[in-house]
Design a protein around this nucleic acid. Structure first.
Length: 567
RNA sequence: GCGCCUGUAGCUCAGCAGGAUAGAGCAACGGCCUUCUAAGCCGUGGGUCAGGGGUUCGAAUCCCUUCAGGCGCGCCA
């Protein structure tokens, strides 16, 4: 049952009777008191005070005196202008715990997204660059949002919008033709490509002719020159294979790798359409959409040499995605530096007359720096993701040796813990916050971390594995105590948390909540023994433990973290 | 110069479509393993919620303003 709604309904009805029908229609807010001793739900009577011309304390008192506790509640009290409702704790525990266990991994899910498609553009790596910690946020926020939306019934299309177009790739091919060879690149992989690119830029400073060579090579790729295209595609292949190792480790998948080059032949449509709709303005030989009326700088569409730009491609991609997937929403998980860029081209799509422009959503996140300084590949001030993950796994492996030397499949568990720690760290704070990356923080295994939550759940599994009696009906009054109620409340809050995380595109809400569940359960665990001789009470405590195990696993799944049964 | 974002405990941050004494983790200090996993639990100390105005019965939360930091502002992506 919906306890909150029951409270609101009951209060409004009583107000209508006690005062006036008008007052009865007053929208009551139902909140949760700061301290459970004050009540489980509360209705503040302050807003009514003006309408009824009575002191809020008097209103609350009058209502409390005459109000019969609604179904599911034991009593109603007034305190300082608040009307406080006390749950029938036994019934509440039974209700929530039974529900979690019945719904299992679908708990806190739903079907409100049925028939709706959400396209999520995330990770979106650049060709010829190694995967580093700066790419983790987009990758994991996108991956998590995908799971959150799917949990609520949406169909998701994960798109890795590859950065695989631009003069830089001509430079890279030119550099390869000058100084590279097959063996060196096969051996060195993406790093070898980066080296070639860096060398090209260095030498180009003294030899401007190189720039032209780079441009010519890119032109060759564009024109479909066989040799240039073969080299470029080979580079792309290498990069994707390299990234795939990381994606495999993270458990991240995509439905499409259609990147910038994919839209190369789809941009004329954008330019033509903008021209037809009289939105293109010429300026210094370049073409743009004027956005002065919207208080924004203009959105450049064509360079003066006729080449397209970032915005042109993004618009082309949006049109293609709408045609192909008919999305309900299209999310762009891209760092906040590009706020203006997205605002601009979203507006351009709107001006083109597409009502679905409002379904394009930029999901921005903060910058990643490393030990107080901006990431800089060329200066070597960078942390590659596979290095981070490998270190995390190695640390987990060492901790396992120390604490659980007899554990089977140690490598598997170490992977889940190590990778989980890094991912959890990335999704722990509101995504808009900058992350200053320190190994000691990202690899912490204590406190509000993945290993803490995973450990709490593994302990649940361990207790559950010892359960023999599965027939005795539970005595739910065993869960009426304060500690158990805190766990029940945390479980009960999960559906609302998942929905809000979805609505706000904010995975950290789930990360925070799973810590909450783990903390309340750990507290309970130390105050109450689960398995005792009292069979009915044991059955209730076991049911609570199972519900926690399920809820924690589900939350972790939603943020892309695996949960080992033993650790 | 203009625009957007951020500012809460020593550190990292929750809380911000207004509500009851401002929370957590880390760090520090002190406790708890012969009973279900101590990667855990309990306790102690620690705050002019950046400053100043305003709105309100009530402001960390809303509005204005100042300050500090970050990001961005037509031919890169």
């Amino acid at each position: 049952m919906d306890y909150k709604a029951a409270v609101a309904q009951c209060v409004n009805k009583r107000i209508g009777e006690a005062f006036s029908a008008d007052a009865g229609n007053f929208p009551e807010t139902v909140e949760i008191p700061p301290d459970p001793n004050m009540g489980d739900f509360a209705v503040p009577c302050f807003p009514l005070s003006k309408l009824l011309r009575m002191a809020p304390q008097a209103i609350a008192a009058k209502l409390a005196d005459s109000l019969a506790a609604p179904e599911g509640f034991t009593r109603v009290e007034s305190a300082g202008g608040y009307l406080n409702f006390f749950l029938d704790r036994t019934r509440y525990a039974q209700d929530i715990v039974t529900k979690v266990n019945a719904q299992g991994e679908n708990y806190a899910g739903g079907n409100e997204g049925e028939g709706k498609v959400v396209v999520i553009d995330y990770s979106s790596i650049n060709i010829a660059k190694r995967f580093h910690i700066g790419h983790l946020s987009s990758t994991m926020i996108g991956h998590s949002l995908r799971r959150i939306y799917e949990h609520l019934g949406y169909r998701c299309i994960g798109v890795n919008h590859l950065g695989d177009w631009g003069t830089q790739f001509g430079k890279m091919v030119a550099a390869y033709k000058r100084w590279g060879n097959r063996e060196q690149v096969e051996k060195g992989g993406v790093d070898a490509l980066t080296e070639l690119y860096v060398r090209f830029n260095q030498e180009a400073e003294h030899d401007p002719a190189l720039e032209n060579e780079g441009r010519a090579c890119f032109k060759a790729i564009e024109d479909g020159d066989e040799e240039a295209l073969a080299i470029f595609n080979w580079f792309k292949d290498l990069t994707l294979k390299d990234a795939q190792r990381v994606y495999d480790l993270l458990g991240v998948t995509f439905d499409s790798y259609a990147g910038e080059s994919f839209y190369n032949d789809k941009m004329d449509r954008v330019v033509d359409e903008l021209r037809e709709k009289n939105l293109l303005v010429e300026s210094d030989g370049a073409y743009m959409v004027d956005l002065e009326a919207e208080g924004m700088p203009p959105c450049l569409i064509l360079k003066k040499d006729g080449a397209t730009l970032y915005s042109t491609r993004d618009i082309a991609a949006a049109l293609y995605r709408k045609d192909t997937y008919d999305f309900y929403k299209c999310l762009y998980v891209v760092a906040y530096q590009q706020d203006l860029h997205f605002k601009q081209w979203f507006k351009v799509v709107e001006k083109m007359g597409y009502p679905w422009a409002g379904d394009l959503v930029h999901v921005p996140f903060g910058m990643v720096s490393f030990e107080g300084q901006a990431l800089a590949t060329r200066k070597g001030h960078v942390v590659y993701l596979d290095d981070l993950l490998n270190q995390a796994v190695a640390k987990a492996r060492a901790t396992i040796e120390e604490k659980s030397p007899d554990l089977p499949n140690k490598d598997e568990v170490a992977r889940k813990i190590g990778v989980g720690a890094a991912v959890f760290f990335d999704l722990y704070n509101n995504r808009i916050k900058d992350i200053d990356f320190y190994f000691e923080r990202a690899l912490a295994f204590e406190g509000e971390t993945a290993p803490y939550v995973q450990y709490s759940r593994a302990r649940c599994c361990s207790v559950l594995a010892k359960v023999k009696d599965t027939k005795t009906p539970p005595d739910w009054s065993a869960l009426a105590n304060e500690e158990a109620q805190a766990v029940v409340r945390a479980l009960a809050a999960m559906p609302e948390v998942v929905r809000e995380a979805c609505q706000r595109n904010e995975p950290s809400m789930i990360t925070r909540h799973v810590v909450d569940i783990a903390q309340t359960y750990n507290h309970y665990y130390f105050e109450h023994r689960i398995l005792t001789d009292d069979a009915p009470a044991t059955a209730a405590r076991v049911a609570l433990t199972r519900a926690v195990e399920i809820a924690v696993k589900t939350c972790l799944y939603l943020i892309g973290v695996e949960a080992p049964d033993k650790m």
